[in-house]
Design a protein around this nucleic acid. Structure first.
Length: 262
DNA sequence: ATGGTGGGTTCCCCA
């Protein structure tokens, strides 16, 4: 008799955890995910809004900075073996990585560098940063364990992940080098869990505020992902994009994505 | 259309 696992793991780029509290708190109450990986929390750990989230029964592990970036893991069970940042980083490095083991599942939560524009300095930084993530995954995450690498990857896999693929051809979030960097992260044995369950095009997780892409006919991209090891893929029964959370008053520009392991 | 909107901070940056 093994342990019965029934676990909803969510990922959500909230674009400021403090600004998003009026959406995050009711969403936690409604969806009650067991684990929530947040990105772009945009605050120092000492001002992370712990109380209202703890009141809903969540442990909080956060790794933030002022203004930019910031990640957190909320979990109903106590997280173990928490890691913050990439190996060898200095104190001033971007806060983009937090990991933990929750109920035996090895979770790695990433806010991947955006990269601004193909060929820019930030683009080079993105590729180099993703290379370091690949190193971490290859050396510290055994593929015979349940491994879930999730977050905002700022990379699409193929044309199905892009509302207007010809407009985005070889642009940021869609270039071959970014996709190769994704493939390198996944090389030890991770798969795109969403595509195990859904082959359809037009399934997006991010819509640009500036072009009003959500309101103007679902003009989005799929850039928030669940990469899973074979035992996690085996346990994963569905991956759903919660479009409702992208609608309404003061949403983030990203929808949450929820994976169920059973 | 090299913008647009939104969040955080500072008189602009990042997405």
């Amino acid at each position: 008799m093994g342990i019965v696992l029934l676990m909803d793991i969510a990922t959500w780029n909230v674009n400021s955890v403090r600004a998003r509290l009026p959406r995050l708190l009711p969403w936690l109450e409604q969806r009650r995910p067991d684990v929530v990986c947040l990105q772009e929390t945009k605050c120092l750990d000492e001002v992370f809004p712990r109380e209202p989230i703890e009141d809903l029964g969540y442990h909080i592990e956060c790794f933030g900075q002022k203004t930019y970036n910031g990640v957190a893991i909320l979990s109903k069970s106590t997280p173990e073996d928490v890691i913050r940042g990439l190996p060898g980083e200095g104190e001033d490095a971007d806060k983009r990585v937090i990991g933990a083991i929750v109920d035996g599942v090895m979770i790695l939560n990433l806010y991947v560098v955006n990269g601004k524009e193909v060929g820019s300095d930030k683009y080079a930084y993105k590729l180099e940063w993703m290379d370091r993530v690949a190193e971490l995954v290859a050396s510290n995450y055994p593929m015979d364990e349940k491994v879930v690498v999730t977050g905002d990857f700022n990379v699409t896999f193929d044309d199905r992940d892009i509302a207007e693929p010809d407009l985005w051809r070889n642009k940021i979030l869609c270039s071959e080098a970014e996709r190769a960097a994704m493939a390198k992260i996944m090389e030890p044995g991770l798969s795109d869990a969403f595509r195990v369950h859904c082959e359809e095009e037009g399934q997006f997780t991010w819509w640009d505020f500036r072009t009003r892409g959500f309101q103007r006919g679902n003009r989005g991209l799929r850039i928030d992902h669940f990469l899973m090891s074979p035992p996690a893929i085996e346990a994963c029964t569905q991956v759903m994009i919660d479009r409702e959370a992208r609608d309404g008053e003061k949403p983030s520009d990203h929808a949450p994505v929820i994976a169920t392991l059973s």
